[in-house]
Structures are given as structure tokens and as C-alpha cells.
Amino acid sequence: MKNWFKWISLIAVIMTGALLIYGTHDMPAWGDPNSPANSHVSPRYILEATKLTATPNIVSAVLADYRSYDTLGESAVIFTASISCLFLLRRIRKEKTSEDK
């Protein structure tokens, strides 16, 4: 029972990988400067970020200025994760002290 599950998962993983490798046939060549990902949104950032935000680092200009709502959402995610960690681990400590008493 243990081994057939491992074999089935191995077959599923290999089929997924074969599908993805078949999908790379349509990808642009690696490092192509004219690929669609490099030629649509980012030229505007590279050309105008320093002029508009007075920050030489384009990555931090985009992170904290153009897409600052994205960063706000990310900090909300971290807040939720830390609060849930706090509640999950607080229950253990209470159980342990009640067992001690």
C-alpha cells in the first residue's frame, strides 16, 4: 500500500513535468531583450522612474511608489500570519500551565 502511492505520485509528477517542458517550446529564448515580458510595461519604468520619483534604484521606486498598495497588501499578509502564529502557539502554553497546576 505504501509503495504504489509513491509510484503513482512519481508518474503524476513526471507527466506534469513533461507537459511543462512541452509548454516551453512556445516560450521566447532565455534572455531575449525583445521578449513580450521585457517590452511592454517596464520600459516606462526604466525611462521615467528616476524623473518622477527622484530615486536612482528603480526597484525600490516601483515597490514603494508605483505599486505601494501592493506593498500595503503584503504587510497586511504578514500581519495576519504573525497574529495567527501568536494565537496558535498561545493555546499550547495555556494548556501546559493548566496541566502543571
Partner: peptide
């Protein structure tokens, strides 16, 4: 291209938050 760097900066931090909750 700076755009994937920005998006993946967010993804790394979210992945470590996921790992923390999973370990708890």
C-alpha cells in the same frame, strides 16, 4: 527589467509567512 524583481520581492516575504504559519 525591474518589474519581475518587484513582484518576486513580495512573493518571497509571503512565502516565509506561509512557512511560519505551517510550522506553528
Amino acid at each position: 527589467n525591474p518589474l519581475p524583481h518587484v513582484l518576486m520581492l513580495t512573493a518571497i516575504v509571503v512565502s516565509i509567512a506561509t512557512t511560519g504559519v505551517a510550522l506553528a
